[in-house]
Write a protein that binds this DNA or RNA. Sequence first.
DNA 1: TTATATATATAAGATGATTATATATAATAA
DNA 2: TTATTATATATAATCATCTTATATATATAA
Lengths: 110, 110
Amino acid sequence: MIANDLLKGTLRTIVLKLLADNGRMYGYEITKKVEELSTGKIKLTFGALYPVLHKLEAEGHIATEVEYIGKRVRKYYTLTETGRSWTEQKVDEFFDFVNTLTYLLKPTPA
Amino acid sequence: MIANDLLKGTLRTIVLKLLADNGRMYGYEITKKVEELSTGKIKLTFGALYPVLHKLEAEGHIATEVEYIGKRVRKYYTLTETGRSWTEQKVDEFFDFVNTLTYLLKPTPA
DNA sequence: TTATATATATAAGATGATTATATATAATAA
DNA sequence: TTATTATATATAATCATCTTATATATATAA
């Protein structure tokens, strides 16, 4: 049984994987990176992103460091130990889902 | 920009594609077929399926025929003309989404 | 005759995303 | 120098979708 959250919550997986690949990142940076990597096809909205980041933090998957760029606050996020293994798991789950769906949507049986 | 409904609403796409491949089907049959094709990995719930079927019908993508098996009612669904082209579009959109996400989640850059 | 499978349907509740709004600094163009 | 755009985070209202629970009824197998 595929985790239902996968059907909706790909956002979490994307955020986690970006942090796994790029070390530490801040929210705004994440939206830019996703837009860049997807050649504009995916644009994360802040109303979705920040709640997800706060939730991941509350769950212990990511940790924060606050930095000041001039007078402007910037919150950097990094994966925790548990966050790292959880990311792998989530990415695997996603590809499992894709394989299943690809099979369902590709063939044209009798 | 990838359609946001894709991130959530793969259920609609699955239902449409099954109807495209198998001609006419009824609700219960669809759940069984999805379970079979996904080797038990995806189990559609009726609380999700029937509202989707009703919505697709209201939108003109599918049409119904009622049949009686003994005394039991069975509602067969078939794609309409617009439903058929819409299905193609939805399936294409899904694979576009998969390609983008695969790129996002696969590489491990610097 | 009792449990399971077939068959459809809706309502309550949870979750997740969009849109709107708020606040503030920094950089660039007019 | 002033207006606009980019940077940066955050929350609330709203909407769509999915899960869980519930209701109803027939057919079949143990």
